[in-house]
Structures are given as structure tokens and as C-alpha cells.
Design a protein around this nucleic acid. Structure first.
Length: 540
RNA sequence: GCCCCGGUAGCUCAGCUGGAUAGAGCAACGGAUUUCUAAUCCGUAGGUCACAGGUUCGAAUCCUGUCCGGGGUACCA
């Protein structure tokens, strides 16, 4: 980051010196060889304004007095790029810094800012599915990213303990119970038929006897408790823990829902029609109005969601992140709109949408529905795959892309999973460091300047980009980008490792410097993996 | 119909705030192990970045249209 500033300052100085007011330019990392480490398009952009050939301007900039000569030198290249060649010295300083700051390298200091991340939020009507898994992993990693960047993060799970779904669940459970005690009761329409309910019904028989009537609250409360315990357990197996669980019912009891209705009515943004209460979204640039309270008197999900979000806003977080599945794309704007109508702040609410997961089994796509019980649960997945692999699998694609989770492939090819590539790099280093200590001693003063091989410098350059990557990720909230970066780091390390020997008793000075490079790589890998919640084993 | 995602190598995908020669893994083929963990590395081969226009000095990236695939369009959540 400091580097970027130096480069910007240099270019800005050129502009100031020549009295040019212009800001439509940038500096980019160069991945291709031969054009320096970074380059700017400033000359290309200036060409039109100055009415000069871009290459001429670039050459002019390249000979502009450079106050940061120890950090970079300049060159110009066709068709008019200004190239920055960073000195090895600069990179080696960063290397030293990585070693010194270790697990804090690239980490932001505590900001005294708070963030709330809401995710999973699956209603306790059944075990979590693989689809929920994507959201769980994504939410957990987003939380880690925010923590890493200095936020004090609250992980929140919001669920509906009060609506129609839970009623149907209770009825379904009763139907299962009735069957077990020999009563003839039909499964309700759209009931839940999963075998997990049979097990719960059996437990009810064992613990509460066979004489319960259909209206006994046990069928709802016991079932909810059982399922929820199962959900928490599933999440914990993946290393995910929530700080706060919020029940929808709370907002009925404390009057928040009535309050939303009251405010909207006062503002003339709601009305009654056909026995239902409507949100006049058409007057707010929406195509049609939406129902808030059904004619049956039950609110739609929209209303409690608005009350819930208003509550989150009132709790004063500096940042609110909602992780939603693609099915919420159309609905969250209504909630935001509701908040605006209540004069609540909404600019600090970020929504991360992820596309769905489809499961491939035996080469075929499995359509999943909790009601129909043909889903694959997260637990089942966990039985076959490690938490590390599951975590990595779910972020192998960007959140905004569909994810085909090929179960057979995940099992068969677990040896080839890219997560092993990262972990192996770390294990290799760990082993090397152990051997190093046995075989030779480290110099008391390290001469970093001995590192000048191409592979060495390329690796350090990559390592030095870690803080910038982490800052990028704070904006995109896309864990996939960390994984991509770490894969690059691992590749650069494996390459270095293959071409250069670290332990060499004939040249302990060079060995000592290379050892430090290994240590720094390990630090970056460990830090990155910790954000992803993936282990960094010492041996494999 | 309308809305949201996606279409890049045989397969799975990176790259997308416009930048120089479009990358990786798998699969195929050929190499590297008396040497710090070969779960690795090196090399060969593989491309009309869906298609057509447009903007630009410059487009996989931005805009428009078309085609194909997925999802959403409830007084379900």
C-alpha cells in the first residue's frame, strides 16, 4: 500500500509540475514479464488532452525527477505505458516486515467498528442441506474477513419460529407420531416427509408417551428444539459458531411489527384491500404493491423482515451484511424500501447474494427440497469429506456463479483437491524448517540481499501483495479471491523449492536468507488459510 | 413477459474498477527422484473469450441486441 502511494505521488508530482489537472489514470500490477512490476496508463490517457503522442509523454514522465529512486526506477514502452521497476531492496524490506509482524502481517488494527453478519437463517424445519452449506461457509469466511480488517463481528442467525412453516412442521410431526401409535392421520398438504421427523416422533413417543393429542404444543416445541440442536451441531462440525440467534417471534411480542404497520399507515404507504394490508410500493417506483398482512391475519415474511432489519439498524452496527441465496434477489429491496420508509439508515447494509448449489450424484443432478426429503444433508457430506475440503469446495467458484457440487468427484478426487496443494506447500515448509534446525544454524544477522534469483524475487513480490489483497477482499467480500491468491503463492513456492536448495551447509549465509523466505511464505499461507477457516497442517 | 446469474482450452473454472503475448487444475503426451516431503516441478499440445454490432488509442472486461443454460417472478419463506 505504501508502494502504491509512492507511485501515485510520483505521477501526481509530474502532473503538478506541469500544471495538468487530471485524475483518470491508474497503476496496475503487471503479470507479464518485461514491462516492469507495475505500470500506469497515464500517458495514454493524457494523449488526447496534451495532443501529443502517448509514447512521447511516457518517455517524458520516465525522466521526471524521481524522489523514490531507492524504491523504483522508470521506463516507457509502446504504445505509451509508464513502467515501474521495483528494486529488490524494497521487496526484501517487506520480507523482513513479514517475519517481524508474523501472524499480524496484513492485519488491520482493531477499528472500534462493529459489523453484523447474518447468514444461514434457515428455519428449523429440517436438517441443513448442501445448499445451506454454501451460505454457512460463505458467511463464516466473510465474518473472518471483516474481523481480519479490524471489525468487531457479530454472527447472527435469524429464524422463523412463529409462522405457517412451523405449524405445518408440527402437523407433519403429529402425523408421524400418530402413525407410530397406530392412529390413522393424514399427512398435511405440503407436509414434511423426511425420515428425520420419524426419529423425532419416536423420541416423543419414548419421552412423552402415546396419548398426546394433535394440539399438544410438544409437537412444535420439541421438534423445533431437536432440529435446531441438530443444525447447531452440523454447523459446529464445520467450525461455525453463531453469537446471536434471533427469533422472528420476538418482534411480534415486543410490538415491533405493529410499529412498522403503524408508521407505514401514518405515512400513507399502506392500505387495506380484499382483507389484506398492502405496502404501497408502487408509489415508490416499484411495479406493483406487495402484501404485508394476509387476509388470514398472518403477516407475510416481508413484514417481520422489515421489523428485524430495523432492529439490526437500531443496534448501531457500522456495517450490516446479509448473506442471501439467489431466491432473495427480488425480495430484499422491499425490506430496504421498508427501512427507508421508516427513516432508517440503509447505506451501511451490504448484501451478498450467492447462486444455488446443484448436486451431482452418479452423473445426474439431484433436485432438492426439504419438504420432499430428497436432499443431501450437510451432515452426510461431512461424513464423507473433511471440513477443509468442504470449505474449499464451496468457495471454488465465486458466490455469483452456480456451483455444481459433484459428489462422486469430490470423493474420488479428494487427493487432487486444490486445497491439498496449499496445505502441502505449508507442510513442505514446516518439514524443511525442522530439518534446517537440525542440520545447520541460522546466521544471527540475515543478509537478505543474497536473495536475487528470479524465483525468489517473484515469490517475495507475491507475498508483499497480501495486505493489498486483503483490502480488496474487504470490498468484494469474496473469499474466492483469497483462495486464488493463496494458490498463486503456493505455486510460486513450489517452483522456488524445486529450483533452489535451501539447506546447504556449504553456504550458510544464503541458506539463512532462504530459510527466512520460507518462513515468510509459511506466515502468508497460514494467515490466509486461517481466514478461510482451513487448517494448515505441519505434515501430510 | 419481466428480473437476476452465467456462457473463456476436451472437462472444471480463474481473469471482468478496459491495458501489452487470455491463465490454472484435471484429462492427453514427453521429461525430472543418489539431492530439503514427487500430494511437487519442467516441457508439448490444446482458444472465433457464445454470436453480432457499438464506445475507445486499446474490449474477455463497458454499452446495445440476439442465442443458449440456471434461478426467481405467491395473500410460501
Amino acid at each position: 500500500m505504501k508502494l502504491k502511494k509512492l507511485m501515485h505521488d510520483f505521477l501526481q508530482d509530474y502532473l503538478d509540475e506541469n500544471k495538468i489537472e487530471f485524475s483518470e489514470w491508474g497503476v496496475n500490477v503487471n503479470n507479464q514479464e518485461g514491462f516492469g512490476d507495475y505500470s500506469s496508463n497515464i500517458a495514454l490517457k493524457l494523449a488526447k488532452i496534451l495532443k501529443k503522442a502517448p509514447i512521447e509523454i511516457a518517455e517524458n514522465i520516465a525522466i521526471h525527477p524521481n524522489a523514490s529512486e531507492s524504491v523504483f526506477t522508470l521506463s516507457a514502452s509502446q504504445p505509451g505505458f509508464v513502467n515501474f521497476h521495483i528494486s529488490n531492496d524494497y521487496y526484501l524490506k517487506i520480507l523482513k516486515q513479514i517475519i517481524n509482524e508474523s501472524e499480524n502481517f496484513g492485519k488491520k488494527k482493531k477499528l472500534n467498528k462493529s459489523a453484523n453478519v447474518e447468514f444461514v437463517s434457515s428455519n428449523p424445519t429440517g436438517p441443513l442441506t448442501v445448499g445451506h452449506g454454501r451460505q454457512a461457509i460463505l458467511g463464516d469466511m466473510v465474518s473472518n474477513i471483516l474481523t481480519w480488517n479490524g471489525y468487531n463481528v457479530t454472527r447472527e442467525y435469524y429464524y422463523n419460529d412463529a409462522g405457517k412453516q412451523m405449524r405445518v412442521l408440527a402437523e407433519s410431526c403429529y402425523a408421524k407420531y400418530a402413525k407410530q401409535v397406530g392412529r390413522d392421520v393424514e399427512m398435511p398438504e405440503n407436509g414434511y416427509v423426511g425420515t428425520y421427523l420419524d426419529e423425532i416422533a419416536e423420541k416423543i413417543v419414548n419421552e412423552h408417551g402415546k396419548d398426546l393429542e394433535s394440539d399438544n404444543p410438544i409437537f412444535r416445541d420439541f421438534t423445533e428444539k431437536e432440529i435446531f440442536a441438530n443444525i447447531e451441531n452440523t454447523l459446529e462440525n464445520l467450525g461455525i459458531k453463531f453469537d446471536v440467534f434471533t427469533k422472528e417471534g420476538t418482534f411480534y411480542k415486543n410490538g415491533a411489527i405493529d410499529n412498522v404497520l403503524k408508521i407505514l399507515k401514518e405515512k400513507n404507504l399502506s392500505y387495506e384491500k380484499d382483507g389484506a394490508v398492502w405496502f404501497k410500493t408502487s408509489s415508490l417506483n416499484k411495479e406493483e404493491d406487495k402484501v404485508l398482512v394476509k387476509s388470514s391475519g398472518e403477516p407475510t415474511y416481508r413484514l417481520p423482515d422489515i421489523a428485524y432489519h430495523a432492529d439490526k439498524v437500531d443496534r448501531g452496527f457500522d456495517l450490516i451484511v446479509d448473506i442471501f441465496g439467489a431466491d432473495h434477489i427480488d425480495t430484499y429491496p422491499d425490506v430496504i424500501l421498508g427501512l427507508k420508509c421508516m427513516d432508517k439508515k440503509t447505506e451501511h447494509i451490504k448484501v451478498v447474494i450467492h447462486q444455488f448449489v446443484t448436486i451431482k450424484k452418479g452423473g445426474e443432478i439431484v433436485k432438492m427440497s426439504t419438504r420432499k426429503a430428497n436432499f443431501i444433508t450437510l451432515d452426510e457430506l461431512k461424513d464423507e469429506l473433511s471440513s477443509d475440503i468442504i470449505r474449499y469446495f464451496f468457495i471454488m467458484r465465486g458466490a455469483n456463479s452456480h456451483l455444481d457440487f459433484d459428489l462422486d468427484l469430490a470423493k474420488d478426487e479428494s487427493e487432487k483437491n486444490p486445497v491439498y496443494y496449499l496445505q502441502y506447500a505449508n507442510a513442505r515448509i514446516s518439514n524443511l524448517l525442522k530439518r534446517y534446525d537440525k542440520e545447520i544454524s541460522t546466521d544471527s544477522k540475515i543478509d537478505y540481499s543474497l536473495l536475487k534469483e528470479k524465483d525468489e524475487i517473484a515469490l517475495v513480490k507475491l507475498l508483499s501483495e497480501f495486505p493489498v489483497k486483503m483490502e480488496d477482499v474487504l470490498h468484494s467480500l469474496e473469499p474466492r479471491k483469497i483462495a486464488t491468491y493463496l494458490e498463486e503463492v503456493a505455486a510460486a513456492y513450489h517452483k522456488f523449492y524445486g529450483n533452489h536448495k535451501v539447506i546447504n551447509s556449504q553456504n550458510t549465509h544464503l541458506s539463512s536468507a532462504r530459510k527466512k523466505l520460507c518462513e515468510a511464505t509459511k506466515i502468508i499461507l497460514t494467515n490466509g488459510l486461517s481466514i478461510l477457516g482451513i487448517s494448515a497442517p505441519e505434515r501430510m
